[in-house]
């Protein structure tokens, strides 16, 4: 009984995140994204990252919002049965918050990507990972965007 209930819940959550990760679908606002992610992390829908498998690396201070280095790593064996399917990067304070979605396959070997993004202002950057089992994990970093004042 208990396990059936959990299954159902997981399925429901999976449907929501499936829509979320649907190729080409755009989320105009942070609210749109939150409507998918919220209610906030619960074990039942696995949104959250209790296991700490999502690692997001961003500078604490970005002196040039036009080009901010970012990298994300999701711990996974990347086997045919168990791999990271997608990672979405969200910049809540950008005019278009959906920065990029990475798609992986077992051939990726590791779910690890480095890129450069634009940040319109000081804000939180989210990394949301969806695994092949449908579970969703997220983490976020705060990035302060300032104009570099050093002469050297």
């Amino acid at each position: 009984m208990n396990s059936t209930r959990r299954k159902l819940l997981t399925k429901g959550a999976s449907a929501a995140v499936a829509a979320f990760f649907c190729n080409g679908k755009s989320y105009a606002t942070v609210e749109d994204i939150h409507s998918v992610l919220d209610p906030p992390p619960k074990r039942d829908n696995n949104v959250g990252d209790e296991a700490g498998i999502v690692k997001l690396f961003t500078p604490e201070i970005a002196e040039n919002g036009n080009s901010v280095p970012i990298s994300v790593f999701v711990a996974s064996q990347m086997s045919a049965e168990d791999y990271v399917a997608s990672v979405l990067i969200v910049a809540e304070g950008n005019p278009n918050p959906q920065v990029v979605t990475f798609h992986f396959t077992p051939l990726s070997g590791e779910a690890k990507v480095k890129t450069r993004m634009r940040l319109a202002q000081t804000q939180d950057v989210l990394a949301v990972a969806k695994l092949s089992d449908g579970s969703v994990h997220k983490t976020s970093n705060h990035v302060k965007v300032t104009i570099g004042g050093c002469g050297a």
């Binding site: 040039n64 919002g65 570099g148 050093c150």
Partner: peptide
């Protein structure tokens, strides 16, 4: 990995020379 007045240059390059200047760290 970064340089003096980077945000100001970056903004100016995007405005005046978007297809000309490429900065690679």
């Amino acid at each position: 990995p970064k340089f003096s007045k980077q945000a100001l240059f970056s903004e100016g390059w995007q405005e005046h020379y978007p297809d000309i200047i490429e900065w690679l760290p």
